[in-house]
Amino acid sequence: MSTCTSPSDNGSTLDEQDRKLVLATQAGLPLVSDPWGALGQQLGMDHEDVLSRFQRMQETGAIRRVAAVPDHYKLGYRFNGMTVWDVRDDAIAEMGQRVGELPFVSHCYRRPRHLPYWNYNLFAMVHGTSRDEVEAKAGQIRKLLGATSAGDTILYSSAILKKTGLRLRKEKATS
């Protein structure tokens, strides 16, 4: 069994130890002075090994980032609007990039249309303390997109019915 990763596989090869680390940290790192050592102690690895695995997973992109992830709802952003846009195909690469760079957009993706049911191909998530705030931010996106967008709407979330962390590994680790 190889534990090597090459640039071509984008680090998708997580070995057994990596997976253990992923599973152990889905709810967060131990908040202690030496989190890597503390994890290592749980899993039978040493500080160096744990740290270098995290660094490698970050380099290869298996870990997007290590962060203090805020709960925006708790912070007071009670309104979550999924803004969706019908952007001209020849403009979407550039416009998607620019919308994604707006400081208030938390996620920005291109997704396929499903005509005639669904004609929106750009999704940008916007948060606000009120609907007005979300509308105002959507207004800024609308202005930026200009004539490249033929239509848009905002889907407000009315309830979070399920939100679990990474589903990852429980099913894979046992296989």
Binding site: A27, L29, V69, G165
Partner: peptide, 12 residues
């Protein structure tokens, strides 16, 4: 919600 890694789901 947590202080820790954000995993790239598509890799998983």
């Amino acid at each position: 919600s947590r202080v820790g890694p954000v995993f790239e789901h598509s890799r998983a």
